[in-house]
């Protein structure tokens, strides 16, 4: 036990560990806020889909030799996000089918393009890092950290300012539109924000973790809590706690960070499911 604490203390003396912790917590917080609405709108898979789209576009940007690939990746992902949100209700292709197609399609094409054009000697390593996150804690640049802080503050303040509107639009879009709230505009803004968060988060923590961060805290919270407010608060707290625990565990056990956080999220979901079950019985 003391050895473990010693190890953690030693690690936390490094600036890059502190930064990784900060960024991890901020990203979890933003994803969890968006996740509540996404899960309730039946868009749980959008994190997965959009991060694969971003992966495919990154591969193409790499093949084109674009250094600042965000210029290409961000607009493409935003367009896909808006398209997916639109197909949600009434379209020729069902929402889930469109999402699955886009997700699998861009994953395949991305990998293909990478194989054909990549000059990197460690291709599978690159692919693995983009999808599953890097093996150990990342060394983040200062601009990455600032970007992350600004983004999280923006997402959080938007969520607080529009909280009641988000609730109403998610609960009953027709009613909300009927009483004169511009539900379509909120959906559009929401689609754009989710795309931005996913693209940026994915560069830092990998595609797998992004989709997990979006769904798990909200789903766990929904097992136990029954009002929108308590679910929101609980999922934000869960996100922060699980990510912190995951990072600590990965330092101690020397496991891949992203995968460890996902494992903690899964464990947390199991605990909350059981709790919910017991509460309903008792």
């Amino acid at each position: 036990m003391i050895a473990i604490i010693d190890k953690l203390v030693e690690f936390f003396q490094y600036e890059f560990v502190q930064y990784a912790m900060l960024v991890g917590v901020l990203i979890s917080l933003s994803s969890a806020l968006l996740g509540v609405t996404l899960v309730l709108k039946r868009f749980s898979f959008i994190g997965d889909g959009l991060s694969h789209v971003a992966f495919g576009t990154m591969a193409i940007a790499g093949a084109l030799g674009l250094v600042a690939n965000l210029i290409l990746v961000l607009p493409v992902t935003i367009v896909c996000s808006i398209f997916l949100m639109k197909t949600g209700q009434n379209a020729k292709i069902k929402g889930d089918a469109a999402l699955a197609m886009l997700s699998v399609g861009s994953l395949g094409i991305g990998y293909l393009v990478m194989n054909m054009f990549s000059k990197s000697s460690n291709l599978s390593g690159d692919v693995c890092a983009t999808l599953f996150g890097s093996r150990s804690i990342l060394t983040l640049s200062h601009s990455d950290i600032w970007l992350c802080i600004i983004l999280s503050v923006l997402v959080a303040s938007m969520f607080i300012l529009f909280y009641h509107k988000i609730f109403s639009v998610t609960f009953d879009e027709d009613f909300t539109t009927a009483i004169g709230v511009r539900a379509k505009t909120y959906n559009l803004i929401f689609a754009i924000v989710i795309a931005i968060v996913i693209v940026l988060a994915m560069r830092l923590v990998g595609a797998l973790l992004v989709s997990a961060l979006v769904i798990f805290p909200a789903l766990s919270a929904m097992r136990v809590f029954k009002s929108f407010f308590s679910v929101t608060v609980c999922s934000v707290m869960l996100a922060v706690v699980c990510t912190s625990l995951g990072i600590l565990a990965s330092i101690v056990a020397e496991t891949p960070v992203g995968a460890t956080i996902v494992a903690v999220d899964v464990a947390c979901f199991v605990v909350f499911s059981l709790t919910g079950f017991v509460l309903r019985r008792g």
């Binding site: 009641h164 509107k165 998610t170 609960f171 029954k226």
Partner: peptide, 21 residues
Amino acid sequence: TVVQKDFPASVREVVRSGCLN
């Protein structure tokens, strides 16, 4: 609508949302 069936929302939250306009 179907979405409402398993939505975590308290009665008070739902009723208040009528005031949004």
